[in-house]
Amino acid sequence: MSQANNSRFPAWSPKALLRNRAFLTVAIVILVWIVAGFAKPGFGSYGHLRYLLELAAVIGLVAIGQTYVVIAGGIDLSVGAIVTVSAVGVPLVALSGDGGGAFAVLIILAAATSIGFLNGLGVAYLRIHPMIMTLAMATFLQGVLILIAGGTAISAQNPLLAWLGNARIIGIPAGVLLWAVVSGAALAVLHATPFGARLYALGANPLASALSGINVQATTMAVYAVSGLTAGLAGVLILGMNGQGYVGIGDPYLLASIAAVVLGGTSILGGSGSYAGTIPGAILLVTITALITVVNASAGWRSILFGSLILLLLLLSGRESQRR
């Protein structure tokens, strides 16, 4: 029993810390912030860092579901479309008797969760490869959204969202607080519940998990539903920060969420990693983007820099060690 405990909570040592990907990513973020703070006046100011965290909160929320799905051995290419569904959908379902705006938000979150659930249904029961299922879902949603919402931006008159996007509690933006709370819950579910343990088992070896009595279908559907829910939350937050939603608003968050997951050390093959690494991964991603914007370069050079930095960071942190 004591041995099992030891393997789960290894004794603290500097070496173990260096091998911990989540810690490594945090260290890289801090290093980049310190260097950039000295090199560029204003970068290290509280206001700027707080702004970076607000941007990271959206990516971080989308990346919760993406981390879950990737750990369970899948991938979700529909998160960008679901973010758009929720950012465009909240103004569309606005009801007259809904003064606080909470009802519209709840409806949309339920809709986002059911879209994720449908993804899970296709993956679990129709046995469609996750990449195909979620890609087809994204294509489908994109068409439906343009048919319903058209090409114009839709403004939201929703007090709850306005508060979420602009309020500061003790100087901390509400969006960042939301991210912190949801992250805490996500980490707890991942590391301290049977559901979290099933995700790792499913990602490591689906056949063995099925044979050892895990309900693979139910777990798969649940994990995609979680992904839909967190993408929906992110869409609500963007709408609050932006004031209006339009078709395509969520597109950048698909690749950003995958990049954050991988930069945080979660294996794209499934079965290992943690959301604890994805959090600094998301912050690292927005920091890189901000640094590139600070460097006064043309659009082409900015794009090249961004791609090269992701490759470089991948070499440092996301290397797949155990193949062949």
Binding site: L255, A259, I304, G307, L311, L314
Partner: peptide
């Protein structure tokens, strides 16, 4: 030994940047 999906994702930014240059 890097995952192809991420390498080509990063490459898409680099190649797209080259095209813009």
């Amino acid at each position: 030994r890097l995952p192809a999906i991420i390498v080509t994702l990063a490459a898409s930014f680099i190649i797209g940047g080259l095209a813009l240059l």
